[in-house]
Design a binder for these strands. Structure first.
Lengths: 227, 227
DNA sequence: GTCTATATGGGGATAGAC
DNA sequence: GTCTATCCCCATATAGAC
């Protein structure tokens, strides 16, 4: 094992890595190509050689993470539906299939601190029009397929309510990946609560799923809630 | 009544209005002062005369909305605590006090389409360092006071879990204000579901509170959930 | 208070050598 | 595939007239 897993990235890969990090930290439109190439140790012309323009670089940065993430989500959903054999899978399992791959994708890498987390949140806000439609194209199929299955798990909710609570759920997920200072300031203060700081992804996912599953189980507009 | 309620804003007000709209639509760092003054019908030098710099303009744009919003939140929380007289208020009421003023603040204005909605989401992501601390300063007190009361409503959750679910809740709230195309695409398709499109804020709030209350009531790490 | 004019620097993109 | 050099536009900020 002389090289761990392609330790010497090509210029193209280094550009994508640097762009991803800077887009997340500084915002997409605010990050200049010059800053990216400086970080990647590359030349300005290399960006246009490899990607054609800044806009296409953005598209590649996003697709590189989102494509495998959504593929994994749908793969897990397929498996759940196959196991349920006609019936409805368990709501918690469906939500884990939706949220698990996202948390893994947004997880800080082993060496660098974080990478894709803030960018996920930006995706839903930044970008005047073009980027919004790009994101839409990436997520529409996944979202609709999950909505159908979640709807079968939640017969107490109308289709409109399902879609709305899916939106709430994505919001909770997106913010779960953030470490906003306001949420840390007094949560962990003295040394009284000695919890292991580096908790595993599975536990993070468990707590997020518990919350959003509670949200879906709550009563809808018509009548009763948790079965 | 020759003038309805200051129909002819001063330059300062027009600059704030234009900046707020453009910051929300295009992002803060991506919006140039030139774009703002063009929208406001003002001059470039006017920005520096009234605010000193772009950074201070940003601060004013945010404070103008956030200050009264958080004041209203705390006023309602005070009232709930006074009515509870020592005991814990009802969880749903506390959450309505937290989320109601935010939905009202983010509501589209009567003439313009939307205004402050996307900006609220951006607040939690955009801004390298300085803006984050500014936002922290605005929200820290409100968040901590609500966390304490919510904690009394949810004895089944640890302080850490309360803070984490507050974060989920803010995320759900932030995304509730967004109309991401992916979430509309098939929710309202044909003319079958004839719901009144312009639903009132109270109903929006009801549905959001139902979801997040369900999230808080779900079981925590130790044991039981909904009482 | 509001304007014009300008100083100074950074932005994306491209041509063309190697 | 990667570099240097360059075109042209836009950014914030300020000076100083009115």
């Amino acid at each position: 094992m002389s090289h761990s897993e392609s330790p010497e990235h090509g210029t193209r890969e280094r550009l994508l890595d640097a762009a991803e990090r800077l887009f997340a930290e500084e915002g997409i439109r605010s990050t200049s190509l010059r800053r990216i190439i400086r970080e990647a140790g590359a030349n300005l012309a290399a960006v246009h050689y490899h990607f054609g323009s800044k806009a296409e670089l953005v598209v590649e940065v996003l697709a590189r993470r989102i494509r495998p993430m959504n593929a994994e989500r749908l793969r897990r959903l397929d498996r759940l539906e196959a196991e349920a054999a006609g019936g409805a899978p368990r709501l918690g399992d469906v939500l884990r299939a939706l949220l698990g791959p996202a948390l893994v994708t947004m997880r800080p890498s082993r060496k660098g601190p974080s990478r894709f987390r803030h960018l996920m949140v930006r995706l839903h806000t930044e970008g005047g029009d073009d980027l919004r439609t790009l994101v839409h194209a990436h997520f529409a199929e996944t979202l609709q397929r999950f909505s159908v299955v979640v709807g079968r798990c939640c017969p107490h909710l109308s289709r409109r309510e399902i879609m709305e609570r899916m939106k709430f759920t994505i919001g909770a997920m997106a913010f779960s990946a953030m470490d906003h200072p306001a949420f840390r300031s007094f949560g962990e203060e003295s040394g009284s609560d000695t919890e292991p700081v580096g908790r595993s992804d599975e536990l993070d996912l468990d707590r997020l799923v518990a919350y959003v599953e509670g949200g879906f189980r709550a009563a809808g507009e018509k009548g009763e809630g948790s079965p």
